[in-house]
Design a protein around this nucleic acid. Sequence first.
DNA 1: AAGTGGTCTAGACCACGTT
DNA 2: ACGTGGTCTAGACCACTTT
Lengths: 259, 259
Amino acid sequence: MFPVMSDPARSRSLPSGQVASAAAFSPLYQQIKALLVQALDAGEWKPGESIPSEIELASRFQVSQGTVRKAVDELAAEHLLTRRQGKGTFVSTHHEPRVRFRFLRLAPNEGEPQPAESQVLDCRRIRANAEMARALELKSGDPVVAIRRLLSFAGTPTVVDDIYLPGALFKGLSADLLNGYSGPLYGLFESEFGISMVRAEEKLRAELAETEIAKCLGLEPGMPLLCVERISYTYANRPVELRVGHYVTSQYYYRNSLN
Amino acid sequence: MFPVMSDPARSRSLPSGQVASAAAFSPLYQQIKALLVQALDAGEWKPGESIPSEIELASRFQVSQGTVRKAVDELAAEHLLTRRQGKGTFVSTHHEPRVRFRFLRLAPNEGEPQPAESQVLDCRRIRANAEMARALELKSGDPVVAIRRLLSFAGTPTVVDDIYLPGALFKGLSADLLNGYSGPLYGLFESEFGISMVRAEEKLRAELAETEIAKCLGLEPGMPLLCVERISYTYANRPVELRVGHYVTSQYYYRNSLN
DNA sequence: AAGTGGTCTAGACCACGTT
DNA sequence: ACGTGGTCTAGACCACTTT
């Protein structure tokens, strides 16, 4: 076939009402990308499931396969989607070890990474203080679920996490539910509450172990700990978790890559 | 024009002897990418300079512009190159603040990031111990330049770095040269020694300040410090710096993004 | 106006996995 | 054999920068 003349009108807008819900006046593939994130956020495809093929999506959005491809490429680069040649494109899930590895950055000084054992020490409903409200984009006093949990590696207590979640999004969350679950916490959030952690920002500091934290870790107070303050985000950049971790870094280190 | 039949022979090899020097049996754009990295490593284009246009590169490598584009896209995503619409594609340089920001991850608890003041405390030639040899891919006993320097923010001593460089690559490096230079250390390495740090791996731990480090920072021994062990790499993944930093994290934190 | 990167399209074919 | 994503090409046009 002869090349078709491109249509200038088409390069800036999608048919029907789709433009209104996406960012207008941006490249087509960015609009497609926004629509895909929107669909993921709405739960149209669940973690672990495949999304429609590129050809189907192209027909659905009335653009070329190449344009869909570029949108999916970016979402795959951001780890929201996972491409598998010959099989399809899948919604990333925390039940894959690959994803977990991105969010649990402790590695042993010697030897191979071991699976962590998680033990919930406390789980209660509280009211958001100013810090929680700011981090989670709530109002002070809004309901929050507060969890304290201990991570151990090969039986050695290594991390105490204080986790704060918006109460409105985690209705049935309890210590029993948490302890009856093996595997990554984010996997539970995903399966039980439909909330996928997709990205996080962390602030790291060195601190001296407080009495109570030291007790949880079986240490003397005053030992040096790595303090990790994390805010996690779902699709569309909504913050849904504040987490303050205290890491023992004598046998383990926090690994990071500067790219 | 009618679409041209694609040539299967071409999809797997580049003309002339180019294939031999790049990774064979990989996608064309990966081969192009490898050739571009090779050219960068050889200093064909210096940091800050523009590389040839996509069309020129396409003609040079005898591939389509789209294939060059994909190779350049990946190198831009890895920050080896910087694209500027309408102007060209440039070799990234540590003289741009954007790049420096990627390698200096301290941010103040309050307020905007301030420029750091660097002060070289020591610079001497030593012999590589086992750790340095392993990190820098040298032999034990090979010459190494050892630098100790202090970073201060707004007059407050905040970081002590111990830096180890392969002696063979940094011939004329001296305390005088270092102190006569303002701006990022990696900028000096780039301009004076033709060595561009492109990527780094870090291991983070909490520690208690040793006497000597504490003295440099004007602290009492026993204060908690963030210990950052870094190995930096140039083009083609050659390690060229081992750096052990000790950070005071009362007024500053180490920022990190999990993507 | 000319040159650069950026977007979009259409089509052919390859590599992989499943049926 | 078929469907999926992956590569490669060619061409048109847009957006930005400089001449």
